[in-house]
């Protein structure tokens, strides 16, 4: 492959021969490419995938608009800063993603997922009505709730609208239905052996559903403020509400009690006990200005009245009039 100076080396002939060989390889490449996208391959296409009326194609546009690939990976390509999202939908189910995305800065607790399951469409998509059914169907959700619930994430809160979240979940449903030739690799290890090595985390389904020791439970015998604090932790309220006056997804709680709040219809109202209780049970009735309707689930069907009043007592303890 060397050419001595002054000797003929037939570059033109060799170049044409190399280009001929390249042409042959090009034909192989084109053939393989056509075979890859024939309908007979049976690969799922986004136009066929819907989630609760939302479109996977629009979800892909939103996925690109927020440059999700700039932190996560999808089919393994992206930035390796966050987890791969290809099979996320299969692992955690739609209700968990619904609970997570509005306030991505905090991991949702079980209450937030429970609330999402009250939505008929989400429950139908998930194939589960109760939280126990859901967690046994989606062990990834169980692991997330029990190990991470109410803790902060590495992800910033994003200004996602209700519709954007729906479309994104449709896109993630599509990717999880894709045939990616067995990637990412399935677990091959023996859970028991890993557990012995002290390495298994949330491997076994049953173990994962049981809340870890020290996780707060609802104890009616506690004084209302302490009971409220536990409930707030259980239901992951602080994913959206700051304990000081900061506005996250929802208004901050510090100094809220007794203050004058301006409603979306232009009127003002005093945030007394009655108002706070109503806002927990039916948030959209007296919506505060600047917050879109539907961002907070109605807790009226989940919490008992005495639980609501405990939470209100806890909020009042955070300062205010």
């Amino acid at each position: 492959m060397t050419c001595a100076p002054g000797k003929p080396c037939w570059e033109g002939f060799k170049r044409r021969r190399a280009l001929g060989l390249l042409g042959l390889m090009f034909l192989i490449f084109v053939g393989l490419s056509i075979a890859s996208f024939l309908p007979s391959r049976g690969q799922v296409v986004p136009i066929d995938v819907e989630y609760a009326g939302y479109s996977a194609v629009r979800g892909k546009r939103i996925f690109q608009a927020y440059n999700c690939m700039g932190c996560h990976t999808i089919v393994g390509n992206g930035a390796y800063f966050g987890p791969d999202l290809t099979k996320l939908y299969n692992k955690v189910g739609p209700a968990w993603i619904e609970a997570f995305l509005p306030s991505a800065g905090g991991w949702p607790a079980s209450g937030a997922v429970m609330v999402k399951l009250l939505d008929e469409e989400i429950a139908a998509e998930a194939g589960a009505r109760t939280i126990d059914e859901y967690l046994s169907l989606y062990p990834g959700a169980a692991e997330r709730i029990n190990r991470r619930g109410s803790k902060p994430t590495m992800m910033p809160n994003l200004p996602l609208s209700r519709d954007e979240i729906g479309h994104l979940i449709a896109f993630l449903k599509y990717t999880s239905e894709m045939n990616t030739e067995g990637w990412p690799p399935e677990p091959r290890g023996d859970d028991a052996a890993l557990a012995l090595a002290g390495l298994a985390g949330g491997g076994g389904q049953q173990a994962a559903i049981a809340p870890p020791p020290g996780f707060p439970t609802d104890d009616p015998s506690l004084p209302p403020v302490e009971r409220g604090a536990n409930l707030v932790k259980m239901y992951g309220c602080v994913a959206c509400h700051a304990l000081d006056g900061t506005k996250l997804v929802g208004p901050g709680w510090g100094g809220l009690h007794g203050s004058e709040v301006k409603l979306a219809d232009g009127s003002t109202i005093t945030a007394d006990e009655a108002y706070l209780s109503r806002s927990i049970m039916e948030p959209d009735v007296h919506l505060v200005e600047g917050f879109p309707p539907g961002s907070m689930p109605a807790f009226g069907t989940i919490l008992k009245p005495d639980q609501v009043s405990s939470i209100v007592a806890y909020i009042s303890s955070l300062g205010g009039n």
């Binding site: 987890p83 791969d84 997330r144 190990r147 991470r148 994430t153 677990p187 290890g189 985390g201």
Partner: peptide, 9 residues
Amino acid sequence: VLQRDWFGG
């Protein structure tokens, strides 16, 4: 291999 996917934890 261990299938842990909590990046923060």
